[in-house]
Simulated scan of single mutants.
Amino acid sequence: MLIQHRANTRGRDFFVGDIHGQYRLLQEALQGVAFSTSEDRLFCVGDLIDRGADSLACLKLALMPWFHAVCGNHEDLAWNALRDGEDSHAWELWMINGGDWVIDSGVNETRRELQAAFRDLPLAREVAVGSKGIGMVHADPPYDWSRIEKADRDALIWGRSRIQQGDETPVVGIDAVVVGHTIVERPLTLGNVHYLDTGAFTTGRLTLVDARELLE
């Protein structure tokens, strides 16, 4: 449900929006900040896969020691589809939502990689940055971070109520929260919740932010 990370005393921490199979865009963004895989850490709000041809390569990132993501709704769609099989409604729903890359990548290999990735795709992460903390979920966080482990799973993965209402109520018990899921024209902040999904698969814009900037 929740994985907590101690402060990075060796390098920097970055947060990135929904990748959606845009492996090249991610590599370009990391090169732009001289990202070091031996010292820096990258935290992703989920939706590594779907709609992009390099989805399998992006899914494999979940196994890298410097990469830390949460489960997005597209990982959830893929899990249900691969569990229920190609004749299921879950499979049809996945295909409608961009899962057709699996045809070229191979169902069996994708299933193996997804099973491996899911061991390190919690619903939430909490990252210490100096003396402060940043929380991360894919969609809607609870209003009290201390209740994160009792929060509604569907809201964490699928929810949009906060952004649809323009709700600027801060999440208490944490200094900042980073989410994705809903495409915004540019990074948006409501209260202390930062929306980073700038639609990489349609706009070609993948947002990468230094954790320290989120706490300024």
Rank of each mutant, 00 (worst) to 15 (best):
D175A: 07
L123S: 11
G85W: 09
K60E: 15
W91G: 00
H74I: 01
L114E: 00
G159S: 11
A81T: 00
D13P: 00
R12Y: 14
S105V: 01
L63I: 04
G199M: 02
D144N: 14
E185I: 04
R12I: 15
D140S: 15
A117N: 05
Q4C: 12
R205V: 13
H89K: 08
R111F: 04
D175H: 07
C44T: 03
A116W: 03
L63S: 14
G99V: 02
A117F: 06
E92M: 06
W145V: 03
N97G: 10
E216L: 11
I19Y: 04
L2V: 13
P187E: 14
V70L: 12
D140L: 08
G180H: 07
R111H: 07
H5S: 10
G180K: 08
P187A: 13
G166R: 05
L188K: 14
G191T: 09
V45H: 04
I183G: 03
Y23D: 15
T169F: 05
M95E: 04
Y23F: 14
W101G: 02
A34G: 08
S55G: 14
R212A: 15
R212L: 15
R147G: 03
G85R: 08
R153W: 01
V33F: 02
F14P: 00
M64K: 15
A69T: 11
G166C: 10
F67S: 07
V193R: 09
C71S: 12
G52Q: 10
E39Q: 14
G99F: 02
W66M: 13
N8Q: 13
R119Q: 14
A151T: 07
V184L: 02
W79I: 03
G72N: 06
T37C: 07
Q4K: 13
D47R: 06
